[in-house]
């Protein structure tokens, strides 16, 4: 139970807030690969992904107190931060104007019930991988174009030469499935 407690990411973040370097080291070991993999997928360059990995974890060290468990799991916090930083980088180097992405934290977040974090990361991953492979190609494509490539609904519709309504529907249906994988 003690080991479980040590590995609990929320507990680690609380220790990081109080300047615990060891907790930070553990937190890094746990999530570095996830952040790096995601960064690599978003930026397409190893050097850029390494820079982003370092940037994200420096933010973890310096701003761990800004994590609020009521708004989501540490994974969601890290993933949202990684994507937001990546989009900023892509925007700064690309002349093409990407659509605005959702900010790290919407304005005026107050109250709300706690979001259930994914139970048992490994199991979840296996489940997700299995489920995602079953996701219809069309739904998976629109989700990836938006989430990984930073395209807006209009840009996706233009690229796929599909009506905007169709794109929206595919996105919502795909997300509905993803939400279904969350622990009840």
């Amino acid at each position: 139970m003690a080991a479980n407690l040590l590995d609990n990411p929320i507990a680690l973040l609380q220790q990081i807030v109080s300047g615990d370097g060891e907790a930070f080291s553990r937190f890094y070991d746990r999530y570095a690969s996830l952040v790096f993999t995601f960064a690599l997928r978003l930026l397409g360059s190893r050097a850029d992904a390494e820079d982003l990995l370092q940037e994200v974890f420096l933010r973890v060290w310096r701003q761990a107190q800004s994590y609020n468990p009521e708004r989501g799991s540490p994974e969601a916090w890290l993933i949202t931060m990684t994507r937001s930083r990546a989009i900023d980088r892509v925007r700064s180097i690309r002349s093409r104007d990407l659509s605005p992405l959702s900010p790290d934290e919407p304005a005026r977040l107050e109250g709300g019930t706690q979001v259930a974090p994914p139970t048992q990361a490994l199991e979840a991953k296996l489940t997700v991988q299995g489920a995602l492979t079953k996701l219809p190609e069309a739904q998976r494509t629109v989700l990836e174009l938006a989430y990984f490539d930073g395209l807006t609904q209009s840009e996706i519709a233009a690229r796929l030469r599909e009506p905007l309504g169709t794109v929206k529907t595919r996105m919502r249906t795909g997300l509905e499935r993803l939400r279904g994988f969350l622990g009840a």
Binding site: F36, T37, L175
Partner: peptide, 18 residues
Amino acid sequence: KTREALTFLPQALEPVTP
């Protein structure tokens, strides 16, 4: 909740060690 669900997308990627 949706952001939570979206974390499945990067988690489903083939992991790369930094």
